[in-house]
Nucleic acid binder design. Structure first.
Lengths: 163, 163
DNA sequence: CGTTCGCCGTTAGTGCCACTAACGGTGTCG
DNA sequence: CGACACCGTTAGTGGCACTAACGGCGAACG
């Protein structure tokens, strides 16, 4: 009981569905992605641009494969992202003299300015995303997400499930 | 404080990225979706099957458009879902005598059995998904997700931002 | 020294999903 | 009757995660 909450927004979505964390995650992420993508598009950027620029700023230059690992963007997709960033002169792509397999990606001054701008944009967007939560709840939310994500990151181990 | 948690899994992902709720959501949802999809695939089902069956069970028969609204599945995609469910004889699709525009979708006995099975499967999968959280935290998590989703559901109104 | 193995960047393509556009068939309202 | 809205359907778009395969290069080993 008491779980009635506001019975208004309920078009007739069964509780079975409404309470499933996986469904809540999917739907919320769809909306979150749209919010963020639209917001970044208005600034002529995409999520991946931010991820790469942030990684370069915080951890220095790196090969495309390294960036791929740092950001979670797939190797195959990284090519295009670097292309776009290069077009906009936010990064530079140069062959690594020390290892001629690699392209060394470096953030430019312009890229740093852009990153600062995108950080502001994202702050605003997240404020909108998390609007209904107070600060303590936002922290709580991020903590829970982080714990879940850590748990499901790679290494499925052979944790349990003897067999 | 204390938010340090295990500093291990950090390959070198910048804090800027790690702490962004939108990113945590995206990544966690990717993993969650994979978990759920794989699990359901093993039972010859998909998320959409469950959504439709649950909606039919809890709210009775309905037109495809109604199901679309109840489940959040797009009208265009609903066709194929009903096709698949019909193939498996989990639902029946019949023209609505009262309104010849409509197809009335009804769940079959077999569909009800299937739904019960899928509920079990999903229970297990969610247990895996939420493994690192205790019951109170799971509830908290679901509550936060629900509040956020409600806030971002449809009707952006003209809340603020005049123009 | 040469062979094997692995990583690197790149291209092409797959599948899922949310979403748009357009169509003909059908009901409703004025 | 005519305008309009809804219904189911088809086709197609774009983003994203992911796979497969390739040639270029480096490192390790015998």
């Amino acid at each position: 009981m008491g779980a009635m909450s506001r019975a208004e927004a309920t078009h007739g979505v069964p509780d079975r569905l409404r309470g499933r964390a996986s469904r809540l995650l999917s739907q919320l992420t769809t909306r979150s992605d749209r919010l963020i993508n639209d917001g970044l598009a208005r600034a002529d950027a995409r999520k991946w641009h931010y991820a790469v620029l942030a990684s370069l700023q915080d951890h220095g230059p790196g090969s495309q494969a390294a960036l791929s690992r740092r950001t979670g963007i797939y190797r195959s997709d990284m090519v295009g992202v670097i292309d776009e960033l290069t077009e906009r002169q936010l990064v530079e792509r140069a062959p690594d003299p020390a290892d001629r397999r690699r392209n060394l990606i470096t953030i430019s001054a312009r890229g740093r300015r852009r990153l600062r701008r995108l950080d502001d944009v994202l702050d605003e967007l997240h404020d909108e995303l998390l609007a209904p939560l107070d600060q303590a709840e936002r922290d709580q939310f991020v903590t829970l997400l982080t714990r879940l994500l850590d748990h499901h990151s790679d290494a499925p181990d052979r944790a349990d499930g003897g067999s």
